[in-house]
């Protein structure tokens, strides 16, 4: 399983922005958050991290989307499940200052 939190930067042009929002609707497995100005938070869930990355690339190419930031990635592939980190790995990227703290487990 792969879960990523993305921030999509939409076009400044309102009609292009609406188009982008429409085409995002069509994507299965994307959960939209609350739009702040022209920045839209979304959560993408995919069975593995390869397909997760693919979605990320596809969204970047949509008309009306300027670029996409990855702020959160969680992946849990079958082969890493028994790994040293226990039952999952999560990476925070960019953004939140809380991300720097070490695992507490």
């Amino acid at each position: 399983m792969s879960v990523s939190g993305l921030v999509i930067t939409l076009s400044e042009e309102p009609s292009a922005r609406d188009r982008a929002l429409e085409s995002l609707e069509a994507y299965p497995g994307i959960e939209r958050g609350q739009l702040s100005d022209r920045w839209l938070p979304v959560v993408v869930e995919r069975p593995d991290d390869e397909s997760g990355e693919a979605v990320f690339r596809e969204i970047s190419l949509l008309p009306g989307v300027e670029y996409v930031d990855v702020v959160f990635v969680h992946f849990e592939n079958a082969d890493t499940k028994q790994g040293a980190l226990g039952n999952g790995q999560t990476k925070g990227m960019h953004g939140s200052p809380q991300v720097t703290a070490a695992s507490n487990r």
Binding site: G92, N104, R105
Partner: peptide
Amino acid sequence: GKQAYSGGPPT
């Protein structure tokens, strides 16, 4: 608490 990531210390 909010966690920055799974396993992170919650606020």
